[in-house]
Simulated assay, not measured.
Amino acid sequence: MIEPRLLQPGTPPPAARGFRMPAEWEPHDATWLAWPVRESDWPGKFPLIPFVYAEILRHLTRFERVHLIVPDAATEVTVKNLLQKSGVNLNAVQFWLLPTDRSWLRDSGPMYLLNTQGQKAILDWHFNAWAKYPDWHADDALPSAIAHLQQLPYWQPVVHGQRVVLEGGAIDVNGEGWLLTTEECLLSTTQQRNPHLGPKDYERLFADYLGCSQVIWLKRGIVGDDTHGHVDDLARFVAPQTVVTVVENNPGDDNYLTLQENLDILRNWRGPTGEKLEVVSLPMPQPLYYEGVRLPASYANFYIANGLVLVPTFNDPADRHALGILADLFPEREIVGIHCVDLVWGLGTLHCMTQQEPRATRNGTPPDNP
């Protein structure tokens, strides 16, 4: 076993060592999930949520391993019983006993990198519950804990002496140096993650730590988004130069102008040598409310797994249209709709709860010393 190492500031950053963040459609070793334990995230609907998770696991385990975080051994026994009844392939599930505050691993879990030699490492960004909630310390500790358990080296990005906050749902990458994000999430003074950073600071961070030299800044997120502008409810790479983006067709809807503005940015974007994006529109479902709260229902919150794309559905006429568009874009993968009317009451769906671990050819081997 090789001792994991926290690679300190002052040593060459990941990109200088040949590391990059792979695209989500690249081969996975596994998907990470955290079992839901916080009833207050789904007030009044929590008893339904474990069954949604079980259905997601049933599909994922047909194609890849799942690393499932549970808080203790007693919960593991209960969860195994439910998963077995639900037809989940338990041979493809590995349980990890770790404390969590919430189960949105896209934002709190480890962000994996690969280098040109097929070596794997982890980025441990600071997590502060979207600069909104006071209880985040258990979630913040997850990436470094997993790095130690997996015997992987890891970085904690620091700028001006402060750890940098970055959630996985705030960015999307094509694996070849391009990155999507929003001004609302990273640059707004509302739910401000990093007051000491400006756009050029972020662009340098993305280049140094993710291997992304081209940043596409969209404007605002959808109505109801508790994260204040995560891009994974807006626009996603589905191929190196292809982006799907949600579009609202009703001019009277609160999302209409915002999504039109983002659509124009994507259509007009040009890379340093004139590269263009192929932009594919996804519909938005009709507004979805519960207890008078508009929920962040979006088909862009899909998750790309090995041989499979899980897509949130909302008992909406647009479900069929969205599934068809994604089927055309991923002809070699199964497209599976997951009913998310109850799940989205927690203000997130499939992409928010998952975190991919890319496949490495030399798993567990740290990069050479500088």
Rank of each mutant, 00 (worst) to 15 (best):
D368S: 13
L179P: 03
L179T: 04
A54D: 02
F302Q: 07
Y256L: 07
F19D: 04
R5Q: 13
A30M: 07
D29M: 14
L218K: 01
E76H: 03
Y133I: 00
W42G: 05
L186C: 09
E332V: 07
T227V: 04
P312M: 07
N194L: 00
L7F: 05
T227D: 01
S281P: 07
L97M: 11
L142M: 11
V279M: 09
V293S: 10
R270L: 07
Q214V: 13
V52Y: 01
R359H: 14
M111P: 02
V309E: 10
H351Q: 14
R20D: 03
E275G: 13
L329I: 01
N268E: 15
T189L: 06
Q192I: 03
V173L: 06
G224P: 09
Q214N: 10
S298H: 02
L288A: 04
L288C: 04
G161P: 01
N91D: 14
A92G: 05
I146N: 09
R58V: 07
A147F: 04
W155Y: 15
D172Y: 05
P370I: 03
I56G: 00
Q286V: 06
Y202L: 01
W32V: 03
A327W: 08
D253H: 15
T189P: 02
G211Q: 03
R38Q: 14
L343K: 08
W35A: 00
P157L: 12
S40L: 00
L210I: 04
R294M: 09
L57M: 14
V238Q: 13
A121T: 05
T365F: 12
E357C: 12
L234E: 01
D226A: 13
G169I: 10
D41F: 04
A147S: 06
Q192N: 15
V159D: 11
L83M: 08
W155Q: 09
E24A: 13
H339M: 11
A129I: 00
Q356T: 12
S298A: 11
A300Y: 06
L98T: 09
P195W: 01
F314W: 05
D328Y: 06
L263W: 14
E167L: 00
L7V: 15
A121L: 10
T75G: 03
C352E: 02
P36C: 09
